[in-house]
């Protein structure tokens, strides 16, 4: 992943995702503690933190797969809708890539990518297919379009998942540990696609422990612990010179391996 100057084509603009005083509880457990976060258009934010610190919940709250108990989340100036068609439309604007690839097992790669545009956006099948092929080529799995997910490697499946999300032409992409279920040799091919995406100016929130990616592509690193954002810094500063004890402790652990 020898990419440098990822910011070359990118301009960080007005705020796109805004979380304001967000709190969430799972029963007794306070999973999100007073989260205030603004992600600017074109910005790449990496979220890092120990297991159970609420990183996934934060991602899922942004496209409202989880509801929040207090505070507001808005996308492009509008608060997240509560339900129905408006909510579905919002989710179409927010692309999400999960840790386990979650491709639709009974559909071909191509059908996986066209389903959303055709059913949600009402794009004509032929048009959606042409666009899907373009995206599949871009993530390097164009040859596999007619295959089924189970016939692809994990890395290929994850790249298809990225293409599937991109097909909706989202305003922001959320990645929840997209490489942590992959074998080492497949991690790089997925990260390359993500770095390329960042360079093209996509707004991204990425939960990952891949420091290489954070250093190459991220504008900012957020460190979460016990449901709160404990530290926020540039990747370089965060990794070489963490301020909080908890971040030091955590980095010590992941760096030792």
């Amino acid at each position: 992943m020898a990419v440098s100057g990822a910011t070359s084509e990118r301009t960080v603009g007005t705020s796109l995702v805004v979380l304001d005083g967000v709190n969430k509880w799972f029963g007794e457990l306070h999973v999100l503690k007073d989260i205030n976060l603004t992600v600017a258009r074109g910005e790449v934010v990496v979220v890092i933190g120990p297991s159970g610190s609420g990183k996934s919940t934060l991602c899922r709250a942004i496209n409202r797969l989880e509801t929040v108990d207090q505070g507001t989340i808005s996308l492009d100036g509008l608060p997240l809708p509560q339900e129905g068609k408006a909510l579905a439309n919002l989710r179409a604007e927010v692309g999400m890539v999960f840790q386990s690839f979650n491709l639709f097992a009974h559909k071909t790669i191509l059908e996986n990518v066209t389903l959303g545009p055709v059913k949600v956006r009402g794009v004509k099948p032929a048009e959606a297919e042409a666009r899907a092929r373009e995206l599949l080529d871009r993530v390097g799995v164009g040859q596999q379009a007619g295959k089924y997910p189970a016939q692809l490697s994990g890395g290929q499946q994850q790249r298809v998942a990225i293409a599937r999300a991109l097909a909706m032409e989202p305003k922001v992409m959320l990645f929840d540990e997209p490489t942590s279920a992959l074998d080492p040799e497949m991690i790089a091919e997925v990260l390359d696609v993500m770095v390329d995406l960042a360079r093209r100016g996509m707004t991204m929130v990425v939960v990952t422990h891949e420091m290489g990616f954070a250093r190459t592509a991220a504008d900012r690193v957020l460190f979460m612990s016990d449901g709160a954002i404990v530290e926020e810094n540039t990747p370089e500063e965060f990794f070489t010179n963490p301020r909080s004890e908890r971040a030091k402790d955590f980095l010590g652990k992941i760096l030792r391996h």
Binding site: L65, A88, E93, M96, N102, F104, G116, M168
Partner: peptide, 13 residues
């Protein structure tokens, strides 16, 4: 359930 989750995340009802 992750199959439904990813469909919903795509914007399907």
């Amino acid at each position: 359930p992750s199959q439904v989750q990813s469909a919903i995340a795509l914007g399907l009802s």
